[in-house]
Design a protein around this nucleic acid. Structure first.
Lengths: 235, 235
DNA sequence: ATTATTGGTGTGATCTCTACACTATTACCA
DNA sequence: TGGTAATAGTGTAGAGATCACACCAATAAT
Protein backbone atom coordinates (compact mmCIF):
# COMPACT_ATOMS: atom_id res chain seq x y z
CA UNK A 1 0.00 0.00 0.00
CA UNK A 2 1.15 3.46 -0.83
CA UNK A 3 1.31 6.15 1.80
CA UNK A 4 0.94 9.83 1.10
CA UNK A 5 4.25 10.33 2.79
CA UNK A 6 5.48 13.43 1.02
CA UNK A 7 2.48 15.57 1.76
CA UNK A 8 2.13 18.24 4.44
CA UNK A 9 -0.23 17.74 7.31
CA UNK A 10 -2.09 20.51 9.08
CA UNK A 11 -4.02 21.33 12.18
CA UNK A 12 -7.77 21.44 11.65
CA UNK A 13 -9.87 23.63 13.84
CA UNK A 14 -13.60 23.99 14.13
CA UNK A 15 -15.02 27.41 15.00
CA UNK A 16 -18.67 27.91 15.87
CA UNK A 17 -20.61 31.13 15.47
CA UNK A 18 -23.45 30.74 17.96
CA UNK A 19 -26.49 33.00 17.51
CA UNK A 20 -29.07 33.64 20.19
CA UNK A 21 -32.11 35.88 20.49
CA UNK A 22 -33.44 37.15 23.81
CA UNK A 23 -36.66 38.58 22.43
CA UNK A 24 -35.04 41.96 21.89
CA UNK A 25 -31.61 41.61 20.44
CA UNK A 26 -29.63 39.19 18.34
CA UNK A 27 -26.53 38.04 20.18
CA UNK A 28 -23.43 35.95 19.66
CA UNK A 29 -21.89 33.64 22.18
CA UNK A 30 -18.24 34.56 22.70
CA UNK A 31 -15.60 33.25 25.00
CA UNK A 32 -12.43 34.51 26.57
CA UNK A 33 -9.73 32.30 25.20
CA UNK A 34 -8.21 30.19 27.94
CA UNK A 35 -4.91 29.33 26.31
CA UNK A 36 -2.10 30.95 24.38
CA UNK A 37 -1.69 32.53 21.93
CA UNK A 38 -4.13 35.38 22.43
CA UNK A 39 -5.09 34.18 25.90
CA UNK A 40 -7.89 36.31 27.41
CA UNK A 41 -8.83 37.78 24.05
CA UNK A 42 -12.38 37.35 22.77
CA UNK A 43 -12.87 34.44 20.48
CA UNK A 44 -15.50 32.26 18.87
CA UNK A 45 -16.07 28.79 20.27
CA UNK A 46 -13.25 26.84 18.73
CA UNK A 47 -11.03 23.83 19.11
CA UNK A 48 -8.98 21.29 17.23
CA UNK A 49 -10.37 18.32 15.41
CA UNK A 50 -9.22 15.06 16.99
CA UNK A 51 -8.01 12.03 15.11
CA UNK A 52 -11.05 9.98 16.01
CA UNK A 53 -13.89 12.35 15.19
CA UNK A 54 -15.54 13.74 12.06
CA UNK A 55 -15.91 17.46 11.51
CA UNK A 56 -19.53 17.44 12.63
CA UNK A 57 -18.64 15.45 15.70
CA UNK A 58 -15.86 17.87 16.51
CA UNK A 59 -18.21 20.83 16.17
CA UNK A 60 -20.73 19.25 18.50
CA UNK A 61 -18.11 18.23 21.01
CA UNK A 62 -16.53 21.66 21.12
CA UNK A 63 -19.87 23.35 21.56
CA UNK A 64 -20.73 20.99 24.38
CA UNK A 65 -17.36 21.35 26.13
CA UNK A 66 -17.24 25.12 25.99
CA UNK A 67 -20.87 25.90 26.66
CA UNK A 68 -22.81 22.82 27.66
CA UNK A 69 -24.99 23.26 24.57
CA UNK A 70 -26.19 20.05 23.01
CA UNK A 71 -28.65 19.12 20.31
CA UNK A 72 -28.83 22.61 18.87
CA UNK A 73 -29.12 23.60 15.22
CA UNK A 74 -25.61 23.45 13.81
CA UNK A 75 -24.62 23.81 10.19
CA UNK A 76 -21.29 23.83 8.42
CA UNK A 77 -20.64 27.21 6.84
CA UNK A 78 -17.23 27.65 5.22
CA UNK A 79 -13.61 26.59 5.54
CA UNK A 80 -10.96 29.19 6.10
CA UNK A 81 -7.49 28.32 4.94
CA UNK A 82 -5.26 31.35 4.54
CA UNK A 83 -1.75 30.21 5.30
CA UNK A 84 -1.13 32.74 8.05
CA UNK A 85 -4.50 32.90 9.74
CA UNK A 86 -3.10 31.42 12.93
CA UNK A 87 0.29 33.00 13.73
CA UNK A 88 1.63 29.98 15.64
CA UNK A 89 1.07 27.24 13.17
CA UNK A 90 -0.90 26.87 10.02
CA UNK A 91 -4.45 25.82 10.87
CA UNK A 92 -7.39 25.28 8.59
CA UNK A 93 -10.64 26.22 10.25
CA UNK A 94 -13.97 24.71 9.34
CA UNK A 95 -16.63 27.12 10.56
CA UNK A 96 -20.13 26.25 11.71
CA UNK A 97 -23.01 28.40 12.75
CA UNK A 98 -25.42 27.47 15.48
CA UNK A 99 -28.87 28.78 16.37
CA UNK A 100 -29.87 28.56 19.99
CA UNK A 101 -32.85 29.37 22.16
CA UNK A 102 -31.00 31.74 24.42
CA UNK A 103 -33.28 31.26 27.44
CA UNK A 104 -32.71 27.56 27.61
CA UNK A 105 -29.03 28.07 28.24
CA UNK A 106 -28.54 31.52 29.63
CA UNK A 107 -27.80 30.70 33.25
CA UNK A 108 -26.00 27.49 32.55
CA UNK A 109 -23.62 29.26 30.21
CA UNK A 110 -22.66 32.17 32.39
CA UNK A 111 -22.24 30.13 35.58
CA UNK A 112 -20.69 26.85 34.53
CA UNK A 113 -18.70 28.20 31.61
CA UNK A 114 -17.02 31.45 30.80
CA UNK A 115 -18.93 32.27 27.68
CA UNK A 116 -20.97 35.44 27.24
CA UNK A 117 -23.82 36.57 25.04
CA UNK A 118 -22.80 39.75 23.25
CA UNK A 119 -25.19 41.85 21.13
CA UNK A 120 -24.39 41.49 17.46
CA UNK A 121 -24.08 45.25 17.19
CA UNK A 122 -21.38 45.35 19.84
CA UNK A 123 -19.01 42.55 18.97
CA UNK A 124 -15.54 43.32 20.34
CA UNK A 125 -12.34 42.77 18.42
CA UNK A 126 -11.85 39.03 17.94
CA UNK A 127 -8.75 36.92 17.46
CA UNK A 128 -7.38 35.73 14.12
CA UNK A 129 -9.93 35.92 11.31
CA UNK A 130 -12.92 35.39 13.59
CA UNK A 131 -14.23 38.83 12.67
CA UNK A 132 -14.43 37.69 9.08
CA UNK A 133 -16.23 34.53 10.15
CA UNK A 134 -18.80 36.56 12.02
CA UNK A 135 -19.43 38.73 8.99
CA UNK A 136 -19.93 35.69 6.82
CA UNK A 137 -22.20 34.13 9.41
CA UNK A 138 -24.38 37.23 9.52
CA UNK A 139 -24.67 37.09 5.76
CA UNK A 140 -25.35 33.36 5.77
CA UNK A 141 -28.05 33.46 8.39
CA UNK A 142 -29.80 36.29 6.57
CA UNK A 143 -29.55 34.54 3.26
CA UNK A 144 -30.82 31.28 4.58
CA UNK A 145 -33.53 32.82 6.71
CA UNK A 146 -34.88 34.69 3.71
CA UNK A 147 -35.60 31.34 2.10
CA UNK A 148 -36.06 28.80 4.86
CA UNK A 149 -37.69 28.81 8.28
CA UNK A 150 -34.48 28.52 10.31
CA UNK A 151 -35.15 31.40 12.65
CA UNK A 152 -37.59 29.34 14.68
CA UNK A 153 -34.51 27.62 16.07
CA UNK A 154 -33.79 30.83 17.95
CA UNK A 155 -37.14 30.92 19.71
CA UNK A 156 -38.58 28.96 22.61
CA UNK A 157 -41.05 26.25 21.66
CA UNK A 158 -43.93 28.60 22.44
CA UNK A 159 -43.69 32.11 21.05
CA UNK A 160 -45.92 34.96 19.96
CA UNK A 161 -46.23 36.63 16.57
CA UNK A 162 -44.84 39.92 17.88
CA UNK A 163 -41.77 38.04 19.14
CA UNK A 164 -41.34 36.33 15.82
CA UNK A 165 -41.72 39.56 13.92
CA UNK A 166 -39.22 41.21 16.20
CA UNK A 167 -36.76 38.45 15.41
CA UNK A 168 -37.19 38.83 11.67
CA UNK A 169 -36.85 42.58 11.97
CA UNK A 170 -33.64 42.18 13.94
CA UNK A 171 -32.09 39.73 11.54
CA UNK A 172 -32.98 41.75 8.48
CA UNK A 173 -32.54 45.09 10.12
CA UNK A 174 -35.79 46.32 8.71
CA UNK A 175 -39.37 46.89 9.80
CA UNK A 176 -42.30 44.93 8.50
CA UNK A 177 -46.00 45.73 8.44
CA UNK A 178 -47.54 43.49 11.08
CA UNK A 179 -50.67 42.73 9.08
CA UNK A 180 -48.66 41.52 6.12
CA UNK A 181 -46.21 39.73 8.36
CA UNK A 182 -48.86 37.71 10.09
CA UNK A 183 -50.52 36.83 6.81
CA UNK A 184 -47.25 35.61 5.31
CA UNK A 185 -46.21 33.65 8.34
CA UNK A 186 -49.57 32.00 8.84
CA UNK A 187 -49.80 31.22 5.12
CA UNK A 188 -46.81 28.90 5.50
CA UNK A 189 -49.01 26.59 7.55
CA UNK A 190 -46.08 26.05 9.90
CA UNK A 191 -47.71 27.57 12.95
CA UNK A 192 -50.29 26.22 15.35
CA UNK A 193 -52.19 28.81 17.36
CA UNK A 194 -52.49 27.93 21.02
CA UNK A 195 -55.28 28.99 23.32
CA UNK A 196 -53.30 30.84 25.94
CA UNK A 197 -51.56 34.16 25.81
CA UNK A 198 -48.25 35.64 26.78
CA UNK A 199 -49.11 38.46 29.14
CA UNK A 200 -45.53 39.53 29.74
CA UNK A 201 -45.09 41.70 26.70
CA UNK A 202 -48.32 43.66 26.79
CA UNK A 203 -51.47 44.34 28.73
CA UNK A 204 -53.71 42.68 26.25
CA UNK A 205 -51.49 39.65 25.84
CA UNK A 206 -50.47 37.93 22.63
CA UNK A 207 -51.44 34.42 21.63
CA UNK A 208 -48.80 31.77 21.83
CA UNK A 209 -47.99 29.74 18.75
CA UNK A 210 -45.92 26.64 18.28
CA UNK A 211 -44.37 25.00 15.28
CA UNK A 212 -46.14 22.24 13.42
CA UNK A 213 -43.10 19.97 13.57
CA UNK A 214 -44.42 17.65 10.87
CA UNK A 215 -44.62 20.42 8.34
CA UNK A 216 -41.52 22.11 9.65
CA UNK A 217 -39.30 19.15 8.92
CA UNK A 218 -41.13 18.25 5.72
CA UNK A 219 -40.87 21.74 4.24
CA UNK A 220 -37.53 22.73 5.59
CA UNK A 221 -35.83 22.87 2.25
CA UNK A 222 -38.80 24.40 0.44
CA UNK A 223 -38.67 28.13 -0.06
CA UNK A 224 -40.72 30.37 2.15
CA UNK A 225 -41.52 33.97 1.57
CA UNK A 226 -41.53 35.98 4.70
CA UNK A 227 -39.32 38.89 3.87
CA UNK A 228 -40.75 41.55 1.56
CA UNK A 229 -38.46 42.47 -1.35
CA UNK A 230 -35.81 39.88 -0.57
CA UNK A 231 -33.88 41.17 -3.57
CA UNK A 232 -32.66 44.08 -1.60
CA UNK A 233 -30.98 42.10 1.16
CA UNK A 234 -28.01 44.17 2.01
CA UNK A 235 -24.84 42.34 2.91
CA UNK B 1 5.31 31.17 22.53
CA UNK B 2 3.13 28.16 22.93
CA UNK B 3 2.93 25.52 20.26
CA UNK B 4 -0.09 23.37 19.66
CA UNK B 5 2.15 20.37 20.08
CA UNK B 6 -0.34 17.85 21.37
CA UNK B 7 -2.79 18.13 18.53
CA UNK B 8 -3.19 15.81 15.55
CA UNK B 9 -2.38 16.99 12.07
CA UNK B 10 -4.14 15.85 8.93
CA UNK B 11 -3.85 15.76 5.21
CA UNK B 12 -6.04 18.32 3.48
CA UNK B 13 -7.28 17.63 -0.01
CA UNK B 14 -9.14 19.80 -2.43
CA UNK B 15 -11.62 18.13 -4.78
CA UNK B 16 -13.23 19.98 -7.68
CA UNK B 17 -16.55 19.12 -9.27
CA UNK B 18 -16.27 20.65 -12.74
CA UNK B 19 -19.49 21.21 -14.68
CA UNK B 20 -19.63 21.79 -18.42
CA UNK B 21 -22.44 22.19 -20.95
CA UNK B 22 -22.04 21.33 -24.61
CA UNK B 23 -25.34 22.81 -25.76
CA UNK B 24 -27.10 19.52 -25.24
CA UNK B 25 -26.03 17.84 -22.08
CA UNK B 26 -24.66 18.75 -18.70
CA UNK B 27 -21.35 17.02 -18.06
CA UNK B 28 -18.76 16.55 -15.36
CA UNK B 29 -15.05 16.50 -15.87
CA UNK B 30 -13.58 13.30 -14.43
CA UNK B 31 -10.11 11.89 -14.40
CA UNK B 32 -8.52 8.48 -14.14
CA UNK B 33 -6.51 8.59 -10.98
CA UNK B 34 -2.81 8.35 -11.74
CA UNK B 35 -1.56 7.18 -8.36
CA UNK B 36 -2.39 4.69 -5.66
CA UNK B 37 -4.62 3.93 -3.94
CA UNK B 38 -7.42 3.41 -6.43
CA UNK B 39 -5.12 4.00 -9.40
CA UNK B 40 -7.03 3.98 -12.70
CA UNK B 41 -10.36 4.43 -10.99
CA UNK B 42 -12.53 7.40 -11.89
CA UNK B 43 -12.15 10.37 -9.62
CA UNK B 44 -12.89 14.05 -9.30
CA UNK B 45 -10.07 16.49 -9.85
CA UNK B 46 -8.28 16.40 -6.55
CA UNK B 47 -4.98 16.96 -4.83
CA UNK B 48 -3.38 17.82 -1.54
CA UNK B 49 -3.10 21.30 -0.16
CA UNK B 50 0.52 22.41 0.08
CA UNK B 51 2.07 24.21 3.02
CA UNK B 52 2.45 27.43 1.11
CA UNK B 53 -0.95 27.88 -0.44
CA UNK B 54 -4.44 28.80 0.70
CA UNK B 55 -7.43 26.56 -0.02
CA UNK B 56 -8.52 28.71 -2.95
CA UNK B 57 -5.02 28.73 -4.35
CA UNK B 58 -4.83 24.96 -4.03
CA UNK B 59 -8.13 24.55 -5.85
CA UNK B 60 -6.97 26.75 -8.70
CA UNK B 61 -3.60 25.07 -8.91
CA UNK B 62 -5.06 21.59 -8.97
CA UNK B 63 -7.56 22.53 -11.63
CA UNK B 64 -4.79 24.04 -13.72
CA UNK B 65 -2.41 21.11 -13.29
CA UNK B 66 -4.95 18.44 -14.06
CA UNK B 67 -6.86 20.13 -16.86
CA UNK B 68 -5.17 23.33 -17.95
CA UNK B 69 -8.26 25.23 -16.88
CA UNK B 70 -7.60 28.69 -15.53
CA UNK B 71 -9.71 31.67 -14.56
CA UNK B 72 -12.94 29.70 -14.43
CA UNK B 73 -15.81 30.11 -12.00
CA UNK B 74 -14.79 28.26 -8.86
CA UNK B 75 -16.62 28.27 -5.55
CA UNK B 76 -16.02 26.49 -2.28
CA UNK B 77 -18.85 24.10 -1.53
CA UNK B 78 -18.40 21.92 1.56
CA UNK B 79 -15.77 20.18 3.64
CA UNK B 80 -15.91 16.42 4.05
CA UNK B 81 -14.30 15.03 7.14
CA UNK B 82 -15.46 11.53 7.95
CA UNK B 83 -12.56 9.80 9.64
CA UNK B 84 -12.39 6.91 7.20
CA UNK B 85 -13.18 8.61 3.92
CA UNK B 86 -9.70 7.89 2.59
CA UNK B 87 -8.67 4.33 3.51
CA UNK B 88 -4.93 5.05 3.52
CA UNK B 89 -4.77 7.98 5.83
CA UNK B 90 -7.28 10.36 7.25
CA UNK B 91 -7.80 13.24 4.87
CA UNK B 92 -10.17 16.17 5.11
CA UNK B 93 -11.41 17.24 1.73
CA UNK B 94 -12.53 20.76 0.93
CA UNK B 95 -14.73 20.53 -2.15
CA UNK B 96 -15.20 23.18 -4.81
CA UNK B 97 -17.46 23.31 -7.80
CA UNK B 98 -16.44 24.89 -11.09
CA UNK B 99 -18.49 26.04 -14.06
CA UNK B 100 -16.77 25.94 -17.40
CA UNK B 101 -17.52 26.84 -20.98
CA UNK B 102 -16.91 23.36 -22.32
CA UNK B 103 -15.99 24.43 -25.86
CA UNK B 104 -13.16 26.61 -24.72
CA UNK B 105 -11.37 23.64 -23.26
CA UNK B 106 -12.62 20.53 -24.92
CA UNK B 107 -9.65 19.71 -27.12
CA UNK B 108 -7.04 20.95 -24.73
CA UNK B 109 -8.39 18.70 -22.02
CA UNK B 110 -8.60 15.47 -23.93
CA UNK B 111 -5.23 15.82 -25.65
CA UNK B 112 -2.91 17.37 -23.09
CA UNK B 113 -4.53 15.82 -20.06
CA UNK B 114 -6.31 12.62 -19.29
CA UNK B 115 -9.56 14.09 -18.15
CA UNK B 116 -12.88 13.34 -19.77
CA UNK B 117 -16.28 14.98 -19.96
CA UNK B 118 -18.93 12.54 -18.78
CA UNK B 119 -22.68 13.19 -19.02
CA UNK B 120 -24.14 13.84 -15.60
CA UNK B 121 -26.66 11.09 -16.18
CA UNK B 122 -23.90 8.53 -16.74
CA UNK B 123 -21.38 9.14 -14.00
CA UNK B 124 -19.43 5.95 -13.28
CA UNK B 125 -18.61 4.71 -9.83
CA UNK B 126 -16.17 7.12 -8.23
CA UNK B 127 -13.53 6.65 -5.56
CA UNK B 128 -13.98 7.41 -1.86
CA UNK B 129 -16.93 9.69 -1.17
CA UNK B 130 -16.73 11.46 -4.52
CA UNK B 131 -20.18 10.18 -5.42
CA UNK B 132 -21.56 12.02 -2.45
CA UNK B 133 -19.71 15.15 -3.49
CA UNK B 134 -21.26 14.96 -6.94
CA UNK B 135 -24.73 14.64 -5.47
CA UNK B 136 -24.18 17.64 -3.27
CA UNK B 137 -22.76 19.60 -6.21
CA UNK B 138 -25.82 18.86 -8.32
CA UNK B 139 -28.01 20.10 -5.51
CA UNK B 140 -25.86 23.17 -4.94
CA UNK B 141 -25.75 24.25 -8.54
CA UNK B 142 -29.50 23.88 -8.83
CA UNK B 143 -30.11 25.75 -5.66
CA UNK B 144 -27.80 28.57 -6.58
CA UNK B 145 -28.94 28.76 -10.20
CA UNK B 146 -32.55 29.11 -9.08
CA UNK B 147 -31.56 32.34 -7.38
CA UNK B 148 -28.52 33.72 -9.16
CA UNK B 149 -27.38 33.94 -12.76
CA UNK B 150 -24.49 31.51 -12.45
CA UNK B 151 -25.40 29.33 -15.40
CA UNK B 152 -24.05 31.87 -17.86
CA UNK B 153 -20.62 30.69 -16.75
CA UNK B 154 -21.33 27.47 -18.62
CA UNK B 155 -22.03 29.20 -21.93
CA UNK B 156 -19.76 30.80 -24.51
CA UNK B 157 -19.69 34.58 -24.49
CA UNK B 158 -22.20 34.65 -27.34
CA UNK B 159 -25.23 32.39 -27.01
CA UNK B 160 -28.82 32.16 -28.13
CA UNK B 161 -32.01 32.05 -26.12
CA UNK B 162 -32.79 28.48 -27.18
CA UNK B 163 -29.33 27.44 -25.96
CA UNK B 164 -29.87 29.20 -22.66
CA UNK B 165 -33.28 27.66 -22.23
CA UNK B 166 -31.88 24.25 -23.02
CA UNK B 167 -29.30 24.74 -20.29
CA UNK B 168 -31.90 25.73 -17.70
CA UNK B 169 -34.06 22.81 -18.70
CA UNK B 170 -31.11 20.45 -18.31
CA UNK B 171 -30.10 21.74 -14.94
CA UNK B 172 -33.61 21.70 -13.54
CA UNK B 173 -34.70 18.64 -15.42
CA UNK B 174 -37.90 20.34 -16.51
CA UNK B 175 -39.37 22.02 -19.54
CA UNK B 176 -40.24 25.67 -19.69
CA UNK B 177 -42.59 27.58 -21.97
CA UNK B 178 -40.34 29.52 -24.30
CA UNK B 179 -42.50 32.66 -24.32
CA UNK B 180 -42.40 32.89 -20.56
CA UNK B 181 -38.73 31.95 -20.46
CA UNK B 182 -37.69 34.72 -22.80
CA UNK B 183 -39.78 37.25 -20.92
CA UNK B 184 -38.22 36.28 -17.60
CA UNK B 185 -34.70 36.21 -18.89
CA UNK B 186 -34.97 39.48 -20.76
CA UNK B 187 -36.65 41.12 -17.80
CA UNK B 188 -33.45 40.66 -15.80
CA UNK B 189 -31.78 43.23 -18.06
CA UNK B 190 -28.68 41.06 -18.07
CA UNK B 191 -28.73 40.30 -21.79
CA UNK B 192 -27.71 42.36 -24.79
CA UNK B 193 -29.22 41.30 -28.11
CA UNK B 194 -26.69 41.20 -30.92
CA UNK B 195 -27.45 41.76 -34.57
CA UNK B 196 -26.26 38.46 -35.99
CA UNK B 197 -27.69 35.01 -35.74
CA UNK B 198 -26.52 31.53 -35.01
CA UNK B 199 -27.50 29.53 -38.10
CA UNK B 200 -26.13 26.24 -36.81
CA UNK B 201 -29.09 25.18 -34.76
CA UNK B 202 -31.92 25.96 -37.15
CA UNK B 203 -32.84 27.12 -40.63
CA UNK B 204 -34.20 30.41 -39.50
CA UNK B 205 -31.33 31.11 -37.13
CA UNK B 206 -31.51 32.45 -33.57
CA UNK B 207 -30.18 35.81 -32.46
CA UNK B 208 -27.02 35.85 -30.42
CA UNK B 209 -27.04 37.51 -27.05
CA UNK B 210 -24.23 38.43 -24.71
CA UNK B 211 -24.10 39.29 -21.05
CA UNK B 212 -24.17 42.87 -19.91
CA UNK B 213 -21.11 42.40 -17.73
CA UNK B 214 -21.74 45.59 -15.77
CA UNK B 215 -25.13 44.42 -14.62
CA UNK B 216 -24.00 40.83 -14.31
CA UNK B 217 -21.37 41.64 -11.72
CA UNK B 218 -23.47 44.30 -10.04
CA UNK B 219 -26.51 42.04 -9.61
CA UNK B 220 -24.78 38.77 -9.00
CA UNK B 221 -25.94 38.40 -5.44
CA UNK B 222 -29.44 39.77 -6.12
CA UNK B 223 -32.13 37.19 -6.62
CA UNK B 224 -33.37 36.43 -10.07
CA UNK B 225 -36.48 34.60 -10.98
CA UNK B 226 -36.06 32.39 -13.98
CA UNK B 227 -37.44 29.11 -12.82
CA UNK B 228 -41.20 28.78 -12.53
CA UNK B 229 -42.38 27.37 -9.19
CA UNK B 230 -38.92 27.21 -7.64
CA UNK B 231 -40.55 25.85 -4.48
CA UNK B 232 -40.75 22.47 -6.03
CA UNK B 233 -37.04 22.06 -6.69
CA UNK B 234 -36.47 18.41 -6.16
CA UNK B 235 -33.23 17.41 -4.59
C1' DA C 1 -42.81 25.89 -54.74
C1' DT C 2 -43.62 22.93 -51.02
C1' DT C 3 -42.42 21.18 -46.72
C1' DA C 4 -40.27 20.61 -42.45
C1' DT C 5 -37.94 22.65 -38.74
C1' DT C 6 -36.88 25.86 -35.31
C1' DG C 7 -37.30 30.94 -33.77
C1' DG C 8 -39.91 34.55 -32.14
C1' DT C 9 -43.77 37.07 -30.20
C1' DG C 10 -48.75 38.96 -27.05
C1' DT C 11 -52.82 38.68 -24.13
C1' DG C 12 -56.06 37.82 -20.60
C1' DA C 13 -57.04 35.31 -16.19
C1' DT C 14 -55.43 34.35 -11.87
C1' DC C 15 -52.72 34.85 -8.09
C1' DT C 16 -49.65 37.40 -5.10
C1' DC C 17 -48.01 41.37 -3.01
C1' DT C 18 -48.32 45.71 -0.97
C1' DA C 19 -49.95 49.67 1.24
C1' DC C 20 -52.73 51.24 4.56
C1' DA C 21 -56.07 52.37 9.66
C1' DC C 22 -59.02 51.16 12.93
C1' DT C 23 -60.84 48.46 17.03
C1' DA C 24 -59.83 45.24 21.12
C1' DT C 25 -57.93 44.27 25.51
C1' DT C 26 -56.31 45.23 29.88
C1' DA C 27 -52.79 46.97 33.39
C1' DC C 28 -52.03 50.92 35.65
C1' DC C 29 -52.87 55.20 37.68
C1' DA C 30 -55.32 59.32 38.96
C1' DT D 1 -63.72 53.46 39.10
C1' DG D 2 -63.11 55.69 34.95
C1' DG D 3 -59.60 57.12 31.93
C1' DT D 4 -55.37 56.40 29.65
C1' DA D 5 -51.63 54.30 27.55
C1' DA D 6 -49.67 50.49 25.42
C1' DT D 7 -49.62 46.60 22.52
C1' DA D 8 -52.44 42.90 19.76
C1' DG D 9 -55.22 41.77 16.16
C1' DT D 10 -57.62 42.07 11.84
C1' DG D 11 -59.46 43.27 6.06
C1' DT D 12 -59.49 45.33 1.60
C1' DA D 13 -58.54 47.27 -2.77
C1' DG D 14 -55.08 48.40 -6.34
C1' DA D 15 -50.87 47.07 -8.54
C1' DG D 16 -47.88 43.92 -10.14
C1' DA D 17 -46.28 39.29 -11.19
C1' DT D 18 -47.08 34.85 -13.02
C1' DC D 19 -49.05 31.53 -15.85
C1' DA D 20 -51.26 29.21 -19.62
C1' DC D 21 -51.78 29.27 -24.17
C1' DA D 22 -51.25 29.46 -30.31
C1' DC D 23 -49.90 31.46 -34.23
C1' DC D 24 -46.75 33.45 -37.82
C1' DA D 25 -41.73 33.93 -39.59
C1' DA D 26 -37.61 32.46 -41.72
C1' DT D 27 -35.09 29.47 -44.43
C1' DA D 28 -32.72 25.08 -45.84
C1' DA D 29 -33.66 21.04 -48.15
C1' DT D 30 -36.13 18.71 -51.48
Amino acid sequence: MTKYSKQSRFLIAVDCIVFGFDGETLKLLLIKRSFNPEKDKWSLMGGFVQATESLDQAANRILKQLTGLEGVYLEQMYSFGETNRDPIERTISVSYFALVDIHKYEKQISTDFHAEWVPLKRIPKLIFDHQEMVELAKKSIRYKAALHPILFELLPSRFTLPQLQNLYESVFNTSIDKRNFSKRVLATGLLIKLTDKDKAGSKRGAYYYQLNMQKYYANFQAFINIIPNPDSLQN
